[in-house]
């Protein structure tokens, strides 16, 4: 075999291996997706949306309490996390720029984005749950806010950076003060990008389970008082899936399906926004 032939053979072998690993990888992932969709659709019915938790064996148990609890916890976290994250990101991009302080905040935020979320749960337990003496929806929201902040901050920073500085200069030349330039020119130019960041940030925290285990805890019934323990789809899913009762496990799959569709939906919408912007 000549050297060239050998190279071609090696090339073909590697390409087949690569395609195979892609196949195996995608196979596993679509297996999981398939399991999720099949079990989820199988478990879905109207009762799930209108009923609250019930003991195992009861026909009419549902997930209404968990869905509403999830909306409360994630909603409150979004309410605080998004404006705070955007404002902090604004500081980095518009005032801090390449200054040392801004760089440190960027680095720390990047690290926090990958830090274990269960540790945030332990932290919130120490500062809120322990002093209050009981779990609460607020504690869950605070944990999710802390997880969401660095994500929103970094995307805002990046997106504002993409706005051409000539736009800012033009506005300054007209005599606009800096805050007006930021709010009326820079934010407007980065709107789609910021929105994408917000959607991806919300999608990310909506799937968090570990930080809720010992902050918002769980509740089998509908509760809209943020001072009390609150159900969430993720913690409910965990509790039901690890229970020995078949109908609870089924509810767990339904919760997994609903939550995944919500998160994938947010991701897809966010991507469409970004594509639209690039297309312009």
């Amino acid at each position: 075999m000549t050297h060239t032939q050998k190279r071609i053979v090696v090339n073909n072998v590697v390409m087949v291996l690569s395609a195979l690993s892609a196949l195996v990888g995608m196979g596993f992932l679509f297996w999981i997706l398939g399991v999720l969709v099949l079990n989820g659709i199988d478990a879905l019915n109207w009762a799930i949306f209108v009923n609250e938790g019930a003991p195992p064996g009861y026909e009419e148990s549902g997930l209404k309490h968990a869905m509403i609890g999830q909306l409360y916890i994630v909603g409150v976290a979004t309410f605080f996390g998004v404006p705070l994250g955007i404002l902090a990101g604004t500081y980095l991009s518009e005032y801090g720029q390449k200054a040392k302080l801004a760089e440190i905040i960027r680095d720390i935020s990047d690290i926090m984005m990958s830090a274990p979320s269960i540790v945030i749960g332990a932290f919130v337990y120490a500062i809120i749950v322990a002093p209050m003496g009981h779990f609460s929806g607020w504690a869950g929201s605070v944990a999710l806010t802390i997880i969401m902040l660095p994500i929103i901050l970094r995307t805002t920073d990046d997106m504002l950076n993409l706005v051409p500085s000539t736009l800012r200069e033009a506005a300054f030349a007209l005599g606009a003060p800096k805050y007006k330039v930021i709010i009326q020119i820079v934010y407007r130019g980065a709107k789609a990008g910021i929105l994408t960041g917000v959607l991806l940030g919300v999608a990310r925290v909506a799937g968090e389970t570990a930080p809720l285990l010992f902050t918002s805890f769980n509740d089998n019934f509908l509760n809209t008082d943020m001072m009390e323990p609150m159900a969430s789809l993720t913690v409910t899913m965990y509790n039901y899936a690890t229970s020995p009762y078949e109908d609870w496990q089924k509810l767990g799959w339904a919760a997994a399906f609903i939550l995944s569709m919500f998160i994938l939906g947010l991701n897809i919408i966010g991507r469409i926004f970004l594509l639209k912007k690039r297309g312009k």
């Binding site: 892609a22 992932l29 999981i32 799937g207 389970t209 993720t234 767990g252 939550l259 991701n267």
Partner: peptide, 23 residues
């Protein structure tokens, strides 16, 4: 392919755990 890989990275880890337990 690329987008579906990225979307799979967005699926909450609790679902991977659940799949692991049952399947």
């Amino acid at each position: 392919f690329g987008v579906s890989i990225e979307l799979l990275a967005a699926i909450p880890s609790v679902i991977y755990g659940m799949w692991g337990l049952f399947y």
